[in-house]
Design a protein around this nucleic acid. Structure first.
Lengths: 215, 215
DNA sequence: CGCCTGACTGACTGGCGAGTCAACCTAGCA
DNA sequence: TGCTAGGTTGACTCGCCAGTCAGTCAGGCG
């Protein structure tokens, strides 16, 4: 009995996953509000009504996509913050590498999260903000710790710096989505990571540039 | 005749402006796709149908908001690029200052442009991209010139660096919109500018941080 | 003073698409 | 073999809102 029941549960989970996978695909292709629920159903090879068996609404489908993926990202970030072995700069480097690698592995998911949640009115007025601030807070904490340890410039406003860090990464993801930034092969990815590190950590200036820049 | 005709034209332009101003306000408050055309009409104190006298469609209203404001921004950017007097880092600093100041002067317009065009599916598939790449190109050119002059690190991929630059600024605007970043008073604005400069130009690392970071 | 032009009005329509629901399986069980 | 539960189906409903259009009003002109 337990066995059979479990199997049914698994099947149900499979259906759910199947719908979510399809949803991610179509959302990535046409954007959330241009996709009709029927599109998701067709792509998943499933009847229209079944979507509403597993999800309350179209919005709820998108939320599930978000929660199930952002959640694991947040978890990884949290662990990274609490790691004793790495310095703050190393942690920041890890985070950017993490995202850029994710871009190879699961571009559609990244696209949907950035496109439909981070970017979009959904972000501005909804509870989604809190999920995002979770990530911001982690980066913020890392920066503050880095400043305390003397590894990061004390002149940075940590909050603004966290925004700069995330904004840079987010826009790079957007660029990769649009194909403006090449980021498919491991070599290209390495190059992008290097520029992120150089620009954000070392700064864009050369020594010569800094001399002229006597502020 | 010329006089009277001109007056009529002016009045017509006023009406148009009046509608656009109202549109910016409501778009900023409720987001493009949650605002009904009737909202714009009500806010502008104008009949529903009149909107369609001046604009082809709701989309066209948004496009006009975008074109008429982004156009002047692009113009300023272009002039800045061609200026002989400033070094590349100084130019970048100017651009960020420009945006952060604009945030004080016309927050709604900035919000609408960022929220509804830069961020939004509108951006991904439409001609809007080209307008944005215009701005990217300017920053890209400035970076390349700065590298040639020896003021900016030659190790940066100029394209990726341009994305980082814009992404940082864009997210800061978002933060200001959300009220997460304080940027109302001149003092706060100065502080934000300083962090942008520090983080992007000098880099987030301290010397101590760089030593440890032997790559 | 009538006429004409064009700004201006707002009730109405048409279509779209989210969400519903009654009917239909199918599998496990007695 | 009949019964139930719940997964599955897709035609239908229903509200919403962009866009239309028949008509009003004002002001310039012969």
């Amino acid at each position: 009995m337990g066995e059979a029941e479990k199997k049914t549960v698994d099947l149900a989970q499979d259906r759910r996953k199947q719908i979510l996978r399809a949803a991610v695909e179509v959302f990535a292709e046409r954007g959330f509000h241009r996709t009709r629920v029927s599109d998701i159903a067709r792509r998943a090879g499933v009847a229209y009504g079944l979507i509403y068996h597993y999800f309350d609404s179209k919005d709820h489908v998108l939320n599930s996509v978000f929660e199930e993926n952002w959640g694991v990202f947040l978890k990884v970030l949290g662990d990274l913050r609490d790691s004793e072995e790495l310095t703050a700069p190393a942690k920041l480097e890890r985070i950017s590498a993490l995202l850029i690698d994710a871009l190879q592995v699961a571009p559609s998911i990244i696209q949907v999260i950035i496109q439909e949640i981070s970017r979009s009115d959904r972000f501005v007025h909804a509870e989604k903000v809190s999920a995002f601030t979770g990530a911001f807070d982690v980066v913020h904490d890392i920066i503050v710790a880095g400043q305390a340890a003397g590894d990061l410039s004390p002149r940075l406003d940590p909050r603004v710096a966290a925004y700069i860090f995330f904004g840079a990464l987010e826009t790079i993801c957007t660029g990769a989505m649009l194909g403006t930034i090449q980021c498919k092969t491991p070599e290209e990815a390495t190059r992008v990571k290097a520029t992120v590190k150089e620009a954000l950590l070392q700064g864009m200036l050369t020594d010569k540039g800094s001399e002229k820049d006597a502020t």
